[in-house]
Computed example of a mutant assay.
Amino acid sequence: MPHILHIDASARPGIAGRIEHGSHSRNLSQFFVSQWQASRPADPVTYRDIGQNPPSFITHDWIASSFTPDGQREPWMLDTLAESEQLVAELIAADILVIGTPLYNFGMPAALKAWVDQVVRPGRTVGIDETNPIEPYIPLLADRPRHAVILTARGGVGFEAGGQMAHMNHLEPSLLTALGFIGITRVHCIAVEGQEVGGELLATSVTEALRKVNVLVDSLLATVEAVALAEPA
């Protein structure tokens, strides 16, 4: 039974199309989850709204605690890492990570970067082989197939791979790097563009993005069903 971790990172609390100035990334992510649950209502979903409740930024104490080996941490170190432990546990439990996020100033929102910093953890999501100084990092979340679905909204146009503004898009590339570093390499990206332009351009982009989400849900559902059929009874 696949477990979904659903994260929304937009500073806008509402859904585009329902309220004025609503979030298009939230619209995509919630549409993905609703379509999934329509077919598999029993699959567990963990929801975290980091856009409205941002994770803490890492500090000197966090770094010192994180790089102190298990069993050697003092009580204050355990307290310092408590939030990170919760976020890491949610990610490890997930089979499908769904991230709804806008593109802010060519990169990810600060809240999403804070989440990334909290979950990329030595000994928890990435191992370090000190005997191999050339390639010391071991992605610990490669232990089983996990998928990440990155659903984004952009004010401008042409930020897709190969587009005229692609060189200024540091959102998806950064997320792909961070997720791949810890072992999540099956990543699917869908975006709405033209939010600042509006009108027919935005409407067409939204319709196409929702269509792609539907196709992706069907594809991932087929993958889950194929795995289930292949498992011994």
Rank of each mutant, 00 (worst) to 15 (best):
H3A: 09
H3D: 08
I4Y: 04
H6S: 08
A11C: 02
R12K: 14
I15H: 07
I15M: 12
R18K: 08
I19E: 15
S23M: 05
H24E: 07
S29N: 06
F31K: 11
Q35D: 12
S39E: 14
R40T: 06
R40F: 10
D43N: 15
P44I: 06
V45C: 09
T46R: 07
R48A: 05
G51R: 06
Q52P: 00
P54L: 09
F57Y: 14
I58T: 12
D61F: 00
W62N: 00
D70V: 12
E74M: 12
S84I: 02
A89F: 01
E90Q: 15
D95R: 11
I96Y: 12
I99G: 00
L103A: 08
G107N: 12
M108C: 08
A111F: 04
A111T: 12
L112V: 01
P122C: 07
N132F: 02
I134T: 14
I138K: 00
L141F: 03
R144K: 15
R146S: 06
H147W: 12
V149R: 01
L151S: 08
R154Q: 15
E160F: 07
G162L: 11
A166P: 00
H167Q: 14
M168T: 10
L176A: 12
T177G: 07
L179M: 05
F181T: 01
R186C: 05
H188D: 13
Q195P: 00
G198A: 04
G199H: 04
L202C: 07
A203T: 13
T204S: 13
V206Q: 11
V206L: 09
V206A: 09
T207R: 13
A209D: 04
K212S: 14
V215L: 13
L220N: 09
A226Y: 04
P232C: 08
